[in-house]
């Protein structure tokens, strides 16, 4: 394997290929249960995104755009492709569909991220105070050689942030980005599946995508959260995705 190619696991053999892009902090294995259900219908390529699993990281400051640029090189240029993205993988899918309308046949976002949520005033205030505190900590560290920033991260940083390692900048970029302009550019049919109990990418984000993307279908699965929608929810996702794929074949 060269540096440029992404690791993937292939499930099933068919002329149709479905490309699977996993979410932050996981690997191709997060789709292993769900993709199993598509084995009969397609060759499923379950990728490890750069920096996760077996694929080496991109440059330190790579964002979802750089991920999508790297990913388009993995795809057969003579065909148009179907992409299923979970969470962060959904961001990459949106970027691709926006920039390469001729190369992408359809995208499916399962708990896809990429849009900012409406936050309460309480949340915004707390976030502002914490950001200021973080800046102060960094400022103090640089002036007085203290190590407040580290303590700050340990106390207030998210699990993803703490575990991000070399991908820390990539994560920060993703968390603060807003893919609304890209979503407006998406021309392919898009399926949006969200779990009603999802607190990371709540249904609100899916509905927002539905408004932005011209050819979008929004489906909400009740009782599922950000992660168990892929395991417990695999069959329900299967039903929705297959119905959607059938509709685009017939269209």
């Amino acid at each position: 394997m060269t540096d440029k190619s992404w690791f993937y696991k292939e499930l099933g053999a068919s002329e149709n290929t479905i490309h699977w892009l996993h979410g932050w902090g996981t690997s191709h294995a997060s789709f292993s249960r769900m993709a199993e259900l598509f084995k009969k219908d397609a060759s499923n390529r379950l990728y490890d995104l750069p920096g996760f699993g077996n694929t080496p990281a991109l440059s330190k400051d790579a964002g979802t755009f750089e991920y999508s640029e790297a990913f388009i090189k993995q795809l057969d240029p003579s065909q148009s492709h179907i992409i299923i993205g979970h969470s962060y993988g959904g961001r990459v899918a949106i970027q691709l569909a926006a920039k390469y309308p001729d190369r992408i046949k359809a995208i499916i976002l399962v708990a896809g991220a990429g849009l900012q949520r409406k936050r309460s005033l309480k949340f915004k205030t707390r976030a502002f105070l914490l950001r200021t505190l973080g800046k102060l900590a960094r400022f103090s560290d640089s002036l007085f050689k203290t190590s407040f920033r580290e303590a700050y991260t340990n106390k207030f940083g998210s699990t993803d942030y703490k575990n991000a390692g070399v991908l820390r900048q990539t994560l920060v970029k993703a968390v603060t980005e807003d893919l609304s302009p890209q979503a407006r550019e998406v021309r392919c049919p898009t399926l949006l599946v969200y779990g009603s109990e999802d607190t990371d990418t709540p249904p609100e984000i899916g509905r927002k995508y539905e408004r932005l993307i011209p050819l979008a279908r929004y489906e909400e699965l009740s009782g599922y959260d950000h992660h168990d929608i892929l395991s417990r929810g695999a069959y329900q996702c299967e039903a929705l995705i297959k119905a959607f794929l059938k509709d685009i074949e017939n269209a």
């Binding site: 979410g23 997060s30 607190t199 168990d228 892929l230 395991s231 417990r232």
Partner: peptide
């Protein structure tokens, strides 16, 4: 009992 509690491991071994 499968996992899947908030903050728990992401790879909930559902099956």
């Amino acid at each position: 009992l499968a996992g899947g509690t908030p903050g728990g491991p992401k790879l909930d071994s559902g099956p």
